[in-house]
């Protein structure tokens, strides 16, 4: 089976089969990162450009490691969106990069739809590494991968997303992906941070944290942007912590096995307490580990090499004996 698309722009509209293909492929790749020699030749000869219009050390590093572990040639370009106003347009930047014969662009951009615009212009494949408040599909996939790893089949599992859903691309990708896989998704935030008509995506909205996390199998705690205070989405971080913070006290409302996720970077003491972040329930570092595997899977499938049957098996056979079982 192959991914029926040339780009990964979002999880919206992606079928359960496609999501599962990526996750299954990521399962195979996760093992590679455990090896002493963390490299396979899957994307040898392919050139990938990481085009980041917003600073993001984590996502960029994760992509870069994924590319390197697949033996792709990678280039990082950090551009500032402010240069768009006075200097080169996205179109020109992209066309220039393409003229250098690259195979894939991983783009982070502060404007929603920017990767869609890019994908319409270029022959090269485009992977969205976060566009404005729209989607962050690889984050969504790594969240789902982590949940699947810990909880198994996600059908009927109660997954709560707490935080500024209105401005969160992570929340949107999680919502699209998790609802497709049959999870029960609950969004919890102050009413100022709940976007209009989000219920129409088949999720529940619960502004009361206690009611939201009762019976939860996992809570994804979103990073709160402190500057949102300036536009009165919430009055203070102290109040946010008291009403929406995931702390040992609030967590008592959830089941004892409830997992805690966070896309990072964390504001410890605001949306999540130190104690919870460092607890056994937290799978925050697993998310980071899984992020590399999921991105390897996405790059591998998008670059089309997945179409060559058996390539993964071939890589795996060359793996050390003890790792074979994991695949």
């Amino acid at each position: 089976m192959t991914l029926g698309r040339n780009d990964l722009l979002g999880l919206e509209g992606m079928s359960a089969e496609e999501i599962n293909l990526i996750l299954d492929t990521a399962d195979s790749f996760k093992e590679i990162s455990e090896r002493p020699v963390k490299k396979v030749p899957a994307l040898r000869g392919k050139t990938v450009v990481n085009l980041f219009f917003e600073p993001s050390t984590r996502t960029r590093t994760s992509f870069e490691l994924a590319e390197k572990r697949l033996s792709a040639d990678t280039v990082n370009i950090s551009a500032s969106t402010s240069s768009v106003k006075k200097g080169e347009t996205l179109r020109d930047t992209a066309e220039n990069i393409q003229a250098m014969k690259i195979d894939l662009i991983v783009m982070r951009h502060s404007a929603a739809g920017a990767p869609h615009f890019l994908a319409g212009l270029l022959d090269a494949a485009v992977v969205n590494a976060g566009d404005g408040c729209h989607e962050h599909p690889t984050q969504g996939l790594l969240d789902i991968f982590t949940l699947r790893e810990k909880l198994g089949d996600l059908r009927g599992k109660r997954i709560v997303i707490v935080g500024d859903v209105a401005h969160s691309r992570v929340a949107r990708s999680d919502v699209f992906g998790l609802t497709t896989l049959g999870a029960e998704v609950v969004l919890c935030a102050p009413p100022t941070m709940i976007p209009r008509d989000i219920e129409r995506f088949g999720v529940q909205v619960e502004t009361n944290l206690k009611r939201a996390i009762e019976g939860a199998d996992a809570i994804n705690v979103l990073r709160i942007q402190l500057e949102r205070q300036k536009v009165n989405l919430f009055p203070s971080s102290l109040e946010y912590n008291e009403v929406y913070g995931i702390t040992a006290e609030s967590l008592a409302w959830a089941t004892p096995e409830c997992l805690i996720m966070h896309p990072g970077p964390m504001n410890r003491g605001v949306e999540i307490s130190q104690e919870v972040a460092d607890s056994d329930r937290a799978v925050i570092l697993d998310q980071v580990t899984n992020g590399v595997a999921v991105r390897m899977a996405v790059l591998y499938l998008i670059c089309g090499v997945g179409q060559k049957e058996g390539l993964i098996e071939e890589e795996v056979q060359s793996a050390p004996e003890e790792n074979r079982e994991a695949v």
Binding site: C133, H134, A166, R169, R172, R196
Partner: peptide, 8 residues
């Protein structure tokens, strides 16, 4: 609904 969907 559509601004929520498109993130604009």
């Amino acid at each position: 609904f559509y601004s929520t969907k498109l993130g604009l």
